[in-house]
Amino acid sequence: MWRDALLIAAKDLKIELRSKVTMNQILPFAFVVLIVFAFALDTSPGTLAKVAPGLFWLAVLFSSVFGVDRAVAIETNDSAGEGLLAYGVDPGGIFLGKVISVFVQLFLLEIFLLLGVVVLYGPKIGGLPLMAISAFFATLGLCAAGVTYSQLASASRAKQTLLPLLLVPVASPVLLAGTKAWQDAFSTAASLGDPWLRLLIVFAVVYLALGAIFFGSILEG
């Protein structure tokens, strides 16, 4: 399973390196979101800095919808996924591979996005270990839930509209916990025993398990 997962992840990342969809489309989109948030809110100093963690995670949530949709579309176009199954690739491995590939892309996007947030909103960042670890598990949870739902919605001709409706309510705890964990990290009370970090870990573990269990049935069914 792990071998299959790494193979799939390497294949998807290679596709990304050549097509640069995340690089050239999703990342710029996330930046635009950061800019229009400033229009919707208030640019007076302090306001944006205060809500910066929430806006960051909202931008990540939006980007993740596109990211997972793209990852699953690679296989559903031309029924490539069925081909993989026919070759005897483990379905759990396909799931994990997709999660790894989207995770790597989304995590890199978050690093760039964080630079944007620091420059545009000017929050006082701190508590780097808590920030990094909570971002790791938040992203993992988002990718696991996202890949599962994206595959569920993939049969639909209207999947571009169906996927956000399915994914955003499910992923709302990640948005909430990610935001709160970062707020804690920015404040002086940063510690790795943060309850929000625990929630993120639980979410990631639950959705990784659910995805690994059910992905095969979704692919075959």
Binding site: P169, P173, P195, L199
Partner: peptide
């Protein structure tokens, strides 16, 4: 999955 998600959602909004 939706049903499993309910306690997670609830716990997060309770906190």
């Amino acid at each position: 999955i939706a049903f499993i998600d309910v306690p997670i959602v609830h716990q997060s909004v309770v906190w």
